[in-house]
Design a protein around this nucleic acid. Structure first.
Lengths: 249, 249
DNA sequence: AATCCTCTTCCACTGAGTGGAAGGTGCCAG
DNA sequence: CTGGCACCTTCCACTCAGTGGAAGAGGATT
């Protein structure tokens, strides 16, 4: 089961990550734990189909076909499309780095991100995952997550900066406040010099995503940012619930 | 060779497309041409790995893992990231639908797209393909494509609207002009009521993409649009060639 | 020219993958 | 309530697709 043909082929694809976007055959085989000769054949098939492409140097990279498939994923097609114009508006009015994220298991998965030419040190990248307890969007998603998820996350509050909240009781208290006030904040809990605000995005009753923003400092403008975020979040919710999601012919 | 385990698994993934973003097992098996029992097992593996996800109804959709992989593809990671801020600027100054596209075989592949809330009838979608001879970005990419590609495309100029250029000689003449003047235009050749302008995006010497724009009419503002496009295209080129592409920590 | 690296091809062996058939579930119509 | 239909799941004996060690080709470095 850990080494059926299929799972091996998938393991080869899984060998790629943010730090390793292009790999040679040997490396690919090593990372996937597959004999070279076997990897050679499988990689060949993946390449022929378009799941992998070759770079000038001969190294393999993820192919366009996978990229195209990815665009069909629900995260992409539903949520992102609905959110896109609102994110732009939001960016236009605030010029801060703007984020859309969903919960994936016990982590935050960044689905969309809009940043200017220069910006605050931001760790996230579209498609990357971060711990929930140290990010604005994470706190929002955690606040509305099922009880069991919350408990499990509280078990393991790893420290990231000096300001990361690592006491379960304190985080729990913050989450209560998030539900009461409708937004979450962080102050240098993920990376120094970066604060964030975030609000939930709903589809009907359920919270399906979080919309957040990273700024160098938020004392001054907090109310303004929160209301901008909430306007955008409502807009997205309305689009999601809206008339069968606008279909592009 | 058309039915190794691997190619069957890939065929299952390939069963999804823009019109069929969620499919039930039976349908999936039928489309991939695989016996139900076999499809059941393969789909199970794909699902366990995260390549497929299940919707509330039980139907399958492309999973987040594939989406994440797609983000690692070179189209996405290099080009799109470099282009993103310039596309926003461009959209901000012109408020027209803006496109970034590359050539994939004999077609145009739309890589990025920025549209306002309301817009001209535009056919493209990110990840979709269109014929090269009837789109602005297509003409640009065709003008700089290898000779053999150009010849093959010229063989088959399918008519789409009444204005589509279908005479090889005439298109060839337009392509010459594209190379001379540095931009391409279309007038309702793909869909009525939509005109477009496009310019090449270079990485060093070679044209790697095209940047385009769709507007209802371009007589008036052509020079302004072309120069806005060229500014953006130069910006992208500079970023691409730039200091080892800005790495996000 | 010797060493080391990665890639490619080959082929005899064998167990992983196959798929028809049977059974389960849930829905709708008569 | 009952039969029919459409979809999903499980089973298991057969066999052919997949395996991977080994050997050879290409290319870079010393």
């Amino acid at each position: 089961m850990g080494d059926s043909v299929t799972s091996r082929a998938l393991a080869l694809l899984g060998a790629f990550d943010g730090e390793n976007r292009s790999l040679c055959l040997t490396e690919l085989a090593r990372r996937a734990g597959i004999p070279l000769a076997t990897a050679h054949r499988l990689v060949g098939e993946l390449h022929r189909w378009g799941a992998l492409a070759r770079e000038p140097g001969g190294d393999y990279v993820i192919g366009r076909r996978i990229w195209q498939l990815g665009l069909l994923a629900p995260v992409q097609s539903g949520l992102t499309q609905a959110a896109s114009p609102f994110l732009h508006d939001l960016y236009g009015t605030t010029l801060a780095t703007v984020h859309l994220a969903v919960r994936d298991g016990l982590e935050v998965l960044y689905v969309e991100r809009l940043a200017g030419h220069v910006s605050v040190p931001v760790v996230s990248r579209v498609g990357s995952r971060l711990p929930m307890h140290a990010t604005g969007v994470g706190k929002v998603l955690l606040a509305y997550a099922p009880e069991e998820v919350r408990l499990e996350v509280l078990q393991n509050l790893t420290r990231i900066t000096a300001y990361t909240v690592t006491q379960p009781a304190r985080l729990l208290d913050q989450l209560r406040r998030v539900r009461a006030e409708g937004y979450a904040t962080t102050g240098e809990e993920m990376s120094l010099g970066a604060c964030s605000v975030a609000v939930p995005v709903r589809n009907g009753e359920t919270v399906v995503a979080a919309l957040g923003m990273v700024v160098p400092d938020l004392r001054r403008q907090l109310p303004r940012l929160v209301s901008a975020l909430q306007v955008a979040a409502h807009g997205i919710s309305r689009t999601l619930a809206g008339p069968a999601s606008v279909e592009w012919k």
